[in-house]
């Protein structure tokens, strides 16, 4: 999983990046908030970011605010790095859109636990997004079978959106997961039997002549 680390202090960034690499993350390090925002707004953006709360220019909280405002549907887990005793920093950081925070210098076990929470949340959100997409696709199919369908009273063909008249079965098959097996129902079979018998009689009388 890709992780972005943003800290203007290269010592803090190096310790954090190495720790995350040991846990098999694919880590990118940047030294300021503007660079962090560029990476998070890119097409192949990391899904997890650890951002220093206090950086020159764009600080970590401001990066969180931008991500939430400009990319409201992005599945991104944002962790802020705050200083010891910076209580107000935590509140304003979470209000700005951070998902969690870690105090500097971080405790390795605590960081691991918090990052694991992030990984779990991202995976859950991914599953949820996938399920929503599946439901939307299913809903789109169902919608196509709703509404007013123009049908021929004689041959029972249906007129589609493209103005072509289609057999009922091909129309429905194209808009749902339904499949058709062809057969003859008893009332039709009776009618057909009568017709066939009449045809036979006609053929016999023709031959006799």
């Amino acid at each position: 999983m890709k992780v972005l680390v943003a800290d203007d202090d290269r010592i803090a960034a190096a310790v954090l990046a190495q720790t995350l690499k040991r846990w098999e993350f694919d880590v990118t390090v940047v030294g300021d908030g503007a660079d962090a925002w560029r990476h998070l707004a890119a097409a192949s953006a990391p899904t997890l970011a650890v951002l220093d709360r206090m950086m020159p220019g764009l600080d970590g909280a401001e990066v969180c605010r931008r991500v939430r405002q400009e990319m409201p549907n992005a599945n991104m887990y944002l962790v802020l790095l705050t200083s010891l005793g910076g209580g107000g920093d935590v509140v304003s950081g979470l209000d700005a859109g951070a998902d969690d925070y870690v105090t500097k210098p971080f405790d390795v076990d605590e960081l691991r636990a918090r990052i694991n929470v992030g990984v779990r949340v991202i995976a859950l959100q991914d599953k949820l997004n996938q399920r929503v997409a599946e439901l939307q696709a299913a809903l789109a199919n169902v919608k196509q079978l709703h509404g007013l369908l123009p049908i021929c009273s004689y041959c029972k063909r249906i007129r589609g959106d493209d103005q072509y008249w289609q057999q009922v079965e091909s129309y429905i098959a194209a808009r749902s997961d339904a499949q058709f097996s062809h057969g003859i129902c008893p009332p039709c079979y009776e009618k057909l039997e009568v017709e066939i018998e009449e045809q036979r009689k006609l053929m016999r009388s023709t031959r006799k002549r």
């Binding site: 202090d9 206090m54 210098p105």
Partner: peptide
């Protein structure tokens, strides 16, 4: 800002 950065670095060095 300058004191904050030094505090951060020194924190990692305990």
């Amino acid at each position: 800002t300058a004191a904050h950065t030094l505090k951060g670095s020194a924190g990692y060095l305990a």
